[in-house]
Design a protein around this nucleic acid. Structure first.
Lengths: 336, 336
DNA sequence: TTCGGCGATGTAAAGGATTACATTCACGCC
DNA sequence: GGCGTGAATGTAATCCTTTACATCGCCGAA
């Protein structure tokens, strides 16, 4: 039942536990022959260091917690992958937590940090659990917490994100260039800074072209279902284009358009956000704003690892490039 | 820097560490007044038990590892949610690992079990990492390992799944009832038992109706892209219906049909598998075989927790109900 | 009054790895 | 020959909790 310990390995190899430990964590400090002998015994006995004991002693868990607000959104999957790769490079494992937008669950996960089950936290939502504020105050810039995708300056936490306003502006500019004037927008929940930024960017673009007053804004919740409802309403009010703040909502909007007997892109144009892996396979292929998803994850981890190592990061705010990918769901506005 | 320990709490509250520990883990064994006083101090000092020390002592990590082959597949997201809920009910946290179908990564995650970082493992793929075979041999039925979604009898591991053959058979029966005779199938990788079972079920249904020899089988890899390619080939060979072994591939097939100038469902019918949350929003809304995703996760956890508690599960194989959800991507075979 | 029993609490021994510090030994140089 | 140096290894304290066992009162029964 009880698994082999370092003591048994040491006994079997005829060395002290210290030597065994060194063989495993700082091999260069052990003589070649000894090292080989110890490794043989380790192998023969199937010895695996007990992480609990190790992390008790070292105060390191070698783990990073990554919480996502909705794991069923494939957008986050790519971020997770990028994070895992970077974490592995730095010698950390990633624990993924799905908070389902639930503050209580967020709190539960945050506890893992307080209890030192993980060395740091990357959260992709916009809420920082209350239980972390003491830590944040105590440690200041050294608090091992990083925000990804979203960015709320008031949290005082380093973060990695794109320029959501500019990205959103690009999308609207694209529609305006196609002669659309009556543009509908389906946002995310207003509480999300990401959604606010995107809305601001969209407004700005509309203003630049004098169509701000014709902009029709509707609030969605990032689900296809919510977008279906809102898009139906927008269509009824005569928009010729709809910009959705994520791809899943764009799917709902396309569905609503089809339901209303409008063909996309001939009669209505639809733009999404995130450029999910299967956006090219939607009917029609979706025009969408691409974020460097994997890179966001990677840079967030790098930022966090920097903090954990005690090196002050050059930038506590990292802004990455976005890119509008034009496909078949957008076209010239129908005439008059 | 160092956080508060149980010793400081004990000192502050004027009791022994044993009492503090008991207040936290078996409150009923401590007198009301003492308990209250200790809890106050715990609160005041912001004491959080150190999990490393605890799990070192108790040999329990209170964590379950759940590995998925591809976290970007929303199908798994629902399974993960079900698992998390059940785990929480049982006092466990879930660590999610994305293996990307990579055996090496699977091995790395399996190591977490060997190192006792987690108490048990639920894997949703079809491969059991080699490093676990010793454990499996040693512990036999008591090995804390459960398989979900897939099922390979030869692994000798308990598992939770649907009857994939029957489900697949249902899908083909549906197509045949709509008068389709030239049916194309896009499978998953042949190595996956799930894909083999589904293929067997589809063949059986075709045989029952004497159209087995007209069945055209193509191998996909569960990606929209692979399905696009295979579906294009199938269309060229004149099938009137395509059954894809997941929804993402169905999306690719629809895209291929549209590319080929065929309208779905009028000229070609397409069936998916999994019934993803946004299947209703595809164009056309997708007919798909639904699995009880959340329940799969939940039952897998229950099975695992049973093993961890040492109670022999009533069934080491749990088969759950599937259901064919008919929407607009399937219709009567075109005449002639 | 005495004592068994029981509830509440304390004492101290694990649990397994890391690591500061101590020791040993071989080597080379004066 | 003596001694400093540095590499290789050993000794033992430490990380923080949990828990078996011991202790201490107190109450009720004899």
């Amino acid at each position: 039942m009880m698994s082999t310990t370092i003591i048994e390995v040491a006994a079997e190899a005829g060395v002290s536990t210290a030597t065994v430990s060194r063989v495993l964590s700082q091999p260069e400090r052990v003589a070649e022959t000894t090292r080989r002998r110890v490794l043989e015994v380790v192998d023969a006995l199937g010895y695996r260091p007990n992480v609990a004991a190790r992390s008790l002693r070292t105060l390191r868990a070698a783990k990073i917690l990554l919480t996502v607000p909705d794991i069923s959104n494939p957008f986050f999957a790519s971020v997770i992958r990028g994070a895992e790769e970077a974490a592995r490079d730095a010698g950390y494992a990633v624990v993924v937590g799905d908070t389902r937008h639930d503050p209580e669950v967020e709190d539960q996960y945050a506890e893992m940090l307080s209890r030192r089950e993980v060395d740091g936290l990357i959260f992709l939502g916009h809420r920082l659990p209350d239980s972390l504020t003491p830590l944040l105050e105590r440690k200041g810039n050294a608090a091992p917490i990083v925000n990804g995708c979203e960015y709320s300056p008031e949290l005082g936490v380093p973060s990695v994100h794109i320029d959501n306003a500019a990205a959103s502006s690009d999308a609207v500019e694209h529609l305006i260039a196609l002669n659309h004037r009556d543009i509908g927008i389906i946002t995310g929940p207003p509480i999300s800074p990401i959604s606010r930024d995107r809305l601001a960017g969209a407004m700005r673009a509309a203003e630049r072209h004098g169509v701000a007053d014709r902009l029709q804004v509707r609030v969605g919740d990032y689900s296809a279902c919510s977008a279906f409802v809102q898009a139906s309403a927008l269509i009824e009010r005569g928009v010729t284009a709809i910009f959705c703040f994520n791809d899943e909502m764009a799917l709902g909007a396309i569905s609503a358009a089809s339901q209303a007997g409008l063909s996309c892109p001939d009669q209505i144009s639809i733009v999404g956000f995130d450029d999910l892996p299967f956006a090219p396979y939607f009917q029609p292929a979706l025009t969408s704003v691409a974020q460097p998803k994997g890179l966001i994850g990677r840079r967030a981890v790098e930022l966090l690892v920097g903090i954990l190592r005690g090196v002050d990061p050059p930038d506590r705010q990292v802004t990455l490039e976005h890119k509008l990918v034009v496909r078949n769901s957008t076209g010239p506005a129908p005439l008059g």
